[in-house]
Structures are given as C-alpha cells and as structure tokens.
Design a protein around this nucleic acid. Structure first.
Length: 818
DNA sequence: CTAGTCACTTAGGAATTGGCTT
DNA sequence: AAGCCAATTCCTAAGTGACTAG
C-alpha cells in the first residue's frame, strides 16, 4: 500500500572479490588484532584466545529466579553496602557476571551514606522519589544564561548515575546475568474506571440503552468510525463478535443481530463535541488538568535500582480498547479487555516494599527475578502476548544495552570480510542447506533484510529473509532479482537488484524446487542461520548486520557529503541525506502526509517572496552605488520570477497592507470606545487606506525600473547586509524544500533512534561545529548521553570494501527520489 | 526437532506540544 | 491570543532471538 511509486530501478551490486582463499588460513584471533583502538578494554580479557570463552555449562546455572531463594538483605542495614553484597555473593560457582556486578557497585560514585538513606527511606513508606526539578524556585547553580521554562536538569542531578563514566562497561553480557541487587518501585498506573456517558446509539433507527460495559465497547468502535480501522470489514466483524459477547452478559441489553443496523454516530458526535470542549478550555483550566495529571503520575516516574534513581518507561497499564492490528491482521478489531491487578506480576527487590494494589484487589504475584529488567508484566488477551513495564530509554539498563549493541556492530567489522568471503564461496556448496544459508546471508548483508522468523496463522502475513516465499522474488534479465513483499508492520518492500550470478542461479533453483506459496529457503531457519553466525563471533545474529551496515553507511556518507566550508544549513542537509540513505536501506517508511504537495508549493512561494525582497534591495543598492551592478554576489538571481507572479504577489502585498490598516483602525476605535471617546469616522479609514493605494502605485512604477531610490537613511552597508541575510534565508528555505521533498515517504526517525551509532553523530557535530541540538531532539540527547563522552579522536572509519555497497545505495536513493 | 515461552528491541501512526505566523 | 502545522513524544504492535519442554 505504501511506496507503490518507488521506482524499481535496477542497480548493481559488486561483491568485492577481496581477500580470497589465503585469508581464511589466518587464525581468527590473530586477525582480531587489527582491532579498533577505541574500544574500551574488556576487563577480564587476559589472554588473546579466550574469545569464545567459558563452557556453556557455566553460564546456564545462573538463570533461575535468584531473588526468590535468597532470604538475606533483611537485617543488615548497617553493614556498608559493599560488604553486604560481597557477603551475599554466591559461593565458588558464581558466574563471572555476578562478580562483575558486585565490583561495579563497590566503586559507585555515590557516597555510601546517600545510598543508605535512599534505601531506608524506601522502606519507610510508599517510595518517595520526588522530582527534584519541579519548581525549583531559584535554581542557584544554573547559569543565568540559559533558563528553560520547564527545566528538567536531570543531567546535573547527582541522583542520576552516569554509568558511562565507569571504567568497564563494554563487555557483552550474556542474557542470564544478574542485573540488579535491590529494586524498588511503586508498581503500575491503572487507567481510570469507565464512566458511562449515557449517549444512546441507534439500532435499526431506534435509540437503545446499553449496559455500561456494552456502552464502553460500543464507544471504542464509535471513536474509530472515521478511521481506516472503522471502515475495515475484518475490524468491524471482529469488533462486532466481541461486542455481542459483552451485550449478552446483561439480559437488559437489546438484541443486536446485524452490524449494518448499528448507528454509532451519536456517540461519535459526542466525542467530537468533547474534543471541542477540551479545546475551548481556558488556559487556567488546561493548566490545572495538566497539573493533576502530572501529580497522579509522580509516584510511578522513577524506580530505585541498586539505590539509584532511574526513570521508568511505560508505567501505565494499557487501557482497554479494540486491538489495532497492522496490515491485514486476522484479529484486528478484537476487544482488548481491561487489565486487572490480578493479572499483573511485579518484579521487586526481596526486601522492597510491595506497592499497594488498587483497593479491593491484589497482584497476580510478586517475584524477585534479578536476571530480568522488567518491573511489571501481564498477558494481553487478544494475542496472548506478554507485556512488560521497563525502564525508560534514558536508563542505565537501556543505555548500556544500546551501547553494547553498537559495540557488537563494531566488532562485526573485524569479522565481516571473512564472513563475506565464506558465504561467497558457500553459494556453490553442494549441500543445498549450506547454499541456502549462504544465499540468505548475502541478502541479509547486502540488502539489510530482517531475519524473517516464521509466523502463525493468526497473524498478519509478513515475511523477512528466511521466510520469503516463491512469489516474493521474481527473476528478471541480467541477474536482476525483483523483491516485492510485506515486511514488518506490513510495510511493502519493493526493490530490483542486480546480484551475483551465483545468487541469481541459486534463487532460480530454490524457487523451482518449491513452487508458488512455498518458502524459498525451505531448508533454512533463523535459528540455524543465527547459530552459524554465532560461530563467527559471539553474539552475532542476523540483526547485527542491519545495525552494522546502517551505521557504517551513515558514517561513510556523512563524511563524504559534508564539506568543511559549508554553512550549518548545508551541513545539516548532508546529515539528513546520509540519514535518509540509511532509512532507504532499512526501508523505513511513513505515509506521505495529505498536505505534502500543498506544503511544497507553499515553500516555493516563500522562496519567491524572498527573492522578490532581494530584488528590491538589489535595485536600491544599484541606485546608491552603480558599481555594485558588476559584483556577482549582488547580481540578479530572480530570473525565474515571472512577471505574472510578481503582479500577483504585489497584489497580495497591497491586500495585506489594507488588512493591516483596517485592523489597526478597528483597534484604535475599540480603544476610543473603551475610553468613552467618540470613534473615528469612516472617512478617516478611507484616508488611511490611501497609503495602501500609494504602495500599489509605487510598486507598479518600480516594476519597470532597474534602480530604486531608497530611503534617505539607507546606506550601502545596510543594503549589503540585508541582501546577505536574505540570501541565507533563501538558501535555508531551499534546503528545507529539498529535504522535505526527498523525505516524502521516508522516515528518518527510526534509523536515528535505533541503527545509527550516536557516537558517529557526536563526532560529526564536533568536527563540523554543528550544535547537537540541531540533529538530536531533547529526548534523543538524553538517551544518547552515553555517547557524548567519546574522545575527540573517536572514529570508526568506514572500510574500503564497503564502498560498493554505499554507492549502490546512492543509486537507489536517487532512483526513488526522482 | 518443534512449538511455545519469555524478554527485549524496533516500528509506524496517533496524540500532544511547541514554535511560528497572523 | 489564536490558529496552524511540523516536530516531538507517546503508545503499543510487531519483530528478533535465546531458551525450554515434550
């Protein structure tokens, strides 16, 4: 449905035929020695070959819900924290990850006393982690220069743990490690109870009365009446079935048999009115409502992890509603029921205070799983999916794993050459299993496809690499493969790619073996593929290639596109271009806004208006100093301004001037009336309006002149400065237009948020003197705080062998844009 | 092996905010 | 001082991938 216009234009992939056979003989460990210098030294690497260290058995043991068994921690408040933990450490068999946890804790940046108070306080009463920033009347330490209104100076808050300032961080943790020692939070926030509105919808033309529960569900649908969901027959059918179940619960509900006889419009209208009302609220009312909301969520905003304050992410329990599945999801429209506390399990420290469940309710259970980072979990009824409450993206846990993800991608750089030469070789392997794997790896690597786990019957039919079916790839002449399938979120992937002849041959063979409707890689599973990848590098899986290729492509492109002498605006354009290339690579799309075309033409108008202004300035300049005519920087550049447009524009200018005069006149009159003075006569207005007519005449006259006599006070310097300013604005607006047009259906946000190593951006900003706020929003800056501390010489140079990949991308981009 | 469970990241669209005219 | 619309944030669906039970 999306991007159907994306021109499927063929482009070339040249797999670098670098390092062939002999390279393979070099032991992996030795090859690794070419390491990137900047990687933080893993703390416990003492010999070069412990790469694939630790027998599996050692790791397995530390899963289990640790907290449930250990009953200590209760009486030792006075023992220094470091000792406490040390004494608690599992005896000799303790996996190394546990040990490390302890070590880090002991040299924590906070004074011990502070920590203990934090812990004690917690035990005393419902956790009181107050927000320090709220109404800090005289922020003494803040420099007077910058005073944001809403100030959340989290960065300066000593309560926030700067984990990246610690010595050791980058060791890639296995998943079963202990993540915390103490954990305290206030649970989850439930949505408000349903308040019936009593608006009667109609059935068969008659107003009907519904039980509150049935009314609630009907209202869920009514709210979506005008949306795509509301029009979707599957959505309607699923909703209707579930609604009927609810209706049956109360015998007083009318018998409702046919969806087509239902009229939800009255409820829909009510909601529209509510929206209006909300908009019409006064400022104070709005402010108060907001304050109340903020107050209600206070208790849930933060958790204490090992005594440190950490922001919680999604502490709200998802409210009931209709499941909005994407694409053609068979269950879309089903009723997502209200979640009761009895379904919610909390994860807490063993001696943490258990948050009160809502009155008359209890929690499903409380666990102490130290290997997990979730705070609460429940199961959703539509798909049986498990939902979690996690910490926010700015938290230590999320930040560390984010950094580890990028470190892993950087690590792949050391192995990728061999992986590529191996799969190139394996394309011809006699075992079809191996050949399929190699072919899939080629696609994952070169096209950044997702792994493609298999999906169930009751989900939308979408695919990734391993689950591609016969009909998703078509063979075109010249070794061109045409891809057309629905990927994650049912986003369409369309692309024509010229591939290695052997890849082309393989696909043809695989397809012939299976036939319509069948998976092309019938001998391949994501698990098998990942197992193979893991043998190259610990933690390597298919998704790492996406991260790796995204980051390295960005690095390479942004370096290539940015010119040192460019203006900041131009540099930003380059940045966004590189970003966009990555978004295209990863197929991150958005639906083009309805107002896109309108917006573009508006910008065009703005540019013309600026050019018009410039023309006027230029002519004045010529009048003052005819020599200026010779200087190219003040030359005519508005040649594309058509006379017709100018006439129209001037008409508008005059019109605007009139409006201005009129409204000023009205205002003055209002004031006079307020002062009990007589109002000015209409003739006065007429008099004033003459100014507009004069403007009209003057503009008309000036139109033919090459020189315009400026005001007496005008100087050459002033004019030159004005022209320069206008030129800058023109350039900026033009860039904006280009950017917008190129971005029509491409979403940059996802790659910026998840795929591009933020350290590349930080380094780029420093190198080119671009303030980071220009490329990172407030939340992004916060999320990527860990990336700010890179040394000035932090680089991850794109490797030469990747050039071919990126050149391909430039071609795709260009073909898609035009 | 296979299907299912679990925990975590990635994703687009809706809702809200905020900055800019008017 | 309000209205407009792009940017940002929120929401939660939809992936990945490790692990487990049968």
């Amino acid at each position: 449905m999306l991007n159907s216009n994306a021109q499927a234009k063929a482009f070339k992939i040249a797999v670098p035929s670098h390092d062939s056979s002999d390279e393979d003989d070099v032991p992996l460990a030795q090859r690794n020695r070419i390491a990137t210098p900047s990687k933080p030294a893993p703390m416990n690497h003492d010999s070069s070959d412990d790469e694939d260290d630790k027998p599996l058995s050692q790791k397995v043991e530390c899963k289990k819900r640790v907290g449930e068994t250990t009953a200590d921690m209760s009486s030792d408040d006075d023992v220094p924290l470091s000792k406490r933990i040390a004494s608690k450490a599992t005896p000799s068999s303790a996996p190394k990850s546990v040990k490390k946890e302890i070590k880090r804790d002991s040299d924590d940046e906070f004074p011990l006393s502070q920590k203990q108070t934090a812990l004690k306080k917690v035990k005393a009463e419902p956790m009181d982690v107050d927000v320090p920033s709220r109404k800090r009347p005289a922020d003494t330490k803040a420099t007077p220069v910058k005073r944001e209104k809403k100030v959340k100076k989290d960065a300066e808050d000593p309560d926030f743990y700067k984990w990246w300032e610690e010595e050791q961080t980058a060791e890639i943790e296995s998943d079963d490690s202990v993540k915390w020692t103490t954990l305290q939070h206030n649970g989850v926030m439930f949505p408000p109870e349903y308040v019936p509105h009593g608006i009667k919808m109609k059935y068969d033309g008659q107003p009907i009365t519904l039980s509150p529960e049935a009314e609630e569900v009907a209202s869920f649908f009514a709210a979506l009446l005008e949306t795509e969901h509301g029009q979707n027959p599957v959505f309607q059918k699923n909703f209707f079935e579930d609604w009927q179940e609810v209706l049956k619960k109360d015998p007083k509900n009318p018998k409702i048999k046919e969806f087509s006889k239902c009229d939800f419009r009255p409820i829909w209208n009510k909601f529209e009115q509510d929206k209006e009302k909300k908009k019409a609220m006064t400022k104070e009312e709005k402010l108060r409502a907001k304050e109340e909301k903020t107050k209600a969520e206070q208790p849930y905003l933060y958790a204490l992890v090992d005594g440190r304050k950490e922001k919680v992410g999604n502490f709200r329990i998802e409210p009931p509603g209709l499941f909005r599945g994407r694409g053609s999801h068979p269950k879309t429209g089903r009723l997502k029921k209200r979640v009761q506390p009895e379904q919610v399990t909390l994860n807490l420290g063993i001696d943490a205070k258990i948050p009160e469940p809502p009155k008359g309710h209890k929690w499903a259970s409380v666990v102490h799983d130290q290997t997990a980072t979730w705070l609460a979990t429940w199961k959703e009824n539509v798909n049986g999916a498990i939902k979690y409450v996690f910490l926010a993206a700015t938290s230590t846990w999320k930040g560390q794993s984010d950094m580890q993800k990028f470190e892993k991608a950087r690590e792949l750089k050391k192995h990728v050459a061999r992986i590529r030469s191996d799969y190139t070789r394996d394309l011809k392997d006699k075992l079809s299993e191996v050949r399929q794997r190699a072919t899939a790896m080629y696609l994952i690597d070169r096209l950044a496809l997702r792994a493609g786990n298999e999906k169930g019957e009751d989900e939308a039919d979408t695919v990734g690499c391993c689950s591609l079916r016969y009909e998703h790839i078509t063979l075109e002449p010249d070794n061109v493969l045409h891809f057309d399938f629905l990927g994650k979120d049912s986003i369409r992937y369309q692309n024509s790619v010229q591939v290695e002849p052997q890849v082309y041959k393989n696909i043809r063979i695989f397809k012939k073996q299976v036939g319509e409707g069948q998976m092309i890689f019938d001998r391949l599973t994501t698990a098998g593929l990942n197992k193979h990848l893991n043998s190259y590098m610990k933690g390597l899986s298919a998704k790492v290639f996406r991260t790796y290729n995204a980051s390295i492509t960005f690095q390479q492109q942004v370096d290539e596109l940015t010119k040192p002498d460019d203006s900041v605006a131009d540099k930003l354009l380059s940045y966004n271009r590189a970003n966009r290339l990555v978004a295209v690579l990863c197929n991150h799309q958005k639906s083009a806004s309805k107002t896109h075309d309108q917006m573009i033409s508006k910008i065009g108008d703005r540019i013309r208006a600026l050019k018009y202004q410039r023309m006027k300035l230029r002519k004045q300049l010529y009048a003052l100093d005819p020599k200026m005519k010779k200087k190219p920087e003040y030359a005519d550049m508005e040649s594309d301004l058509e006379d017709e447009w100018i006439v129209e524009h001037e008409k508008n200018l005059v019109e605007k001037e009139k409006e201005k005069i009129k409204s000023k006149f009205e205002k003055q009159n209002d004031k006079l009336i307020a002062d009990k003075q007589p109002r000015m006569p209409q003739s006065e207005l007429k008099e004033k309006l003459k100014a507009a007519t004069e403007l009209q005449d003057r503009l008309k006259k000036e139109r033919k002149l090459a020189k315009i006599e400026p005001k007496a006070s005008m100087t050459v310097e002033k004019l030159v400065a004005s022209i320069q300013k206008i030129d800058e604005r023109i350039a900026a607006t033009k860039n904006q237009a280009t950017d917008k047009e190129e971005n029509k259906e491409i979403a940059l946000g996802t790659s910026k948020l998840n795929y591009i190593d933020p350290r590349i951006t930080v380094a780029w900003c420093r190198q080119h003197d671009v303030p980071q706020e220009k490329v990172f929003s407030k939340t992004l800056l916060e999320k990527f705080r860990w990336a700010q501390t890179i040394p000035d010489d932090w680089v991850s140079r794109a490797e030469v062998c990747l050039e071919s990949v990126t050149n391909i991308l430039v071609e795709i981009l260009n073909s898609r844009i035009k």
